[in-house]
Design a protein around this nucleic acid. Structure first.
Lengths: 234, 234
DNA sequence: TACTGTGAAACGGTTCACAGCC
DNA sequence: GGCTGTGAACCGTTTCACAGTA
């Protein structure tokens, strides 16, 4: 949807040629990245179930894809499997987290402490995944100055200094549609690097800012279409 | 991801051959359907801004795609444009809603009245989009028996009879990951036709049930990857 | 002139099939 | 035997380019 700049391929630095090549050598389709997240989810489950290894066909079956797809996806990033064995779960978890960048800690801010915002603040899985919400913003004086789930809520006017002070990297927008673009602009000005937008609008941002949009109505519409047309598409 | 059964093409009924052919003649890629939702969103904005018509290139620009893409997408479903003019906004809204099936009213249930569930119950846009949440379910006696946003909360044990009684068609799952599969099974047993799953697990369901998954951690992971790899993919 | 609808070409992701390895 | 990694074939989507229409 946005032109992807080709990644540097002719790296002249004498890098270790085999084993995990970390900066993806080839430009990676975003659908591959989203499957990586799903692999990670299943790997966590596998570990919890006491499994030590998993094969590409097992992983594929769990997700409704094929073994070849799993192997191809992982091959974008390196050689993580063991012929005759499969993938060691713990090892692959580590690799995928490194690929996604979730082995480090990310600092996140939330703008808009309404219903959705509050749910996001209370969502426990973010911290486990490497994402820490360190500040929230709103205009409503009834919430400004307080804390929710240990996260301080500031007045929106203080966004820029606080984002800079905490070196916040990612922003989540959960404000009404009409305000989303200006909030996004503010976040960009403050130096944020990526945005998850829950407002039902298409944001226009500099190409250098990563953007993911989540629209709940859109999701239900997909479902309605599938049901109405009974062809079981997913 | 799931095999799509070919839609009937040889319709023998003497249907009006030109103009809007409603049941998609060709099998429609799901990415096209998701763009339809986005077109709809932009069309609503356009109408609110007082526009009467919009061209494929304007629509495309708004969404970060091309004019050709917009036209090709719409061409799956019929001939909605007017050469030299573009698309009449109101008209196209009507058409897309009919295609998506959101011109009718859908009845929805929510299982899991935790943080996420409560946010969903309070989300105002569902009803505007044609989706009405008519019942919610939980196990917690502190919420069971009450109402949230006018939606009654029942004990989970009463799911099947109540879903049947209200002819509820769609379900939203907002329970912890460990319980999601069994909730999904219950919903299927009760006769639900489609599910939006907010729990971070891959559900396994009969092919006849439509499924959409939303995982907030996954969304943030996409963002982290984009930022960490600075290639501005979306 | 302005714009749609659509074959045809180009592109990119998926699937296949097999060499290589444990 | 079981499984990975990967070039090559395949297939579906996107882009192009233009005929057709108001």
């Amino acid at each position: 949807m946005r032109p992807q700049v080709p990644n540097f391929t002719g790296n002249s630095v004498p890098s270790p040629k085999n084993k995990p090549l970390n900066p993806p050598a080839r430009d990676v389709p975003s659908v591959v990245v989203s499957r990586l997240s799903l692999y990670l989810r299943e790997l966590h489950h596998a570990v919890r179930d006491g499994r030590a290894t998993i094969s590409s066909s097992q992983l594929g079956k769990l997700l409704g894809t094929t073994d070849a797809q799993v192997r191809k996806d992982l091959a974008y990033f390196g050689h993580f499997g063991h012929p005759g064995i499969g993938y060691r779960c713990e090892e692959l978890i580590t690799e995928i987290r490194r690929i996604l960048g979730t082995d480090r800690q990310w600092t996140v801010t939330l703008v808009g402490v309404g219903n959705m915002g509050r749910a996001l603040l209370r969502y426990k899985r973010f911290s486990a995944g490497g994402f820490q919400i360190v500040a929230a913003f709103d205009l409503d004086p009834r919430v400004v100055g307080g804390q929710i789930e240990g996260v301080p809520v500031y007045d929106f006017s203080r966004l820029t200094p606080i984002v800079r002070q905490h070196h916040i990297q990612l922003g989540m927008i959960a404000v009404p549609a009409t305000q989303a673009q200006q909030v996004a602009d503010q976040l960009v000005t403050a130096g944020i690097e990526g945005i998850v937008n829950f407002a039902p609008v298409t944001l226009s941002l500099p190409k250098s800012i990563a953007l993911v949009g989540v629209d709940l109505t859109t999701e239900l519409e997909q479902l309605a279409f599938s049901v109405a047309n009974r062809s079981g598409s997913r």
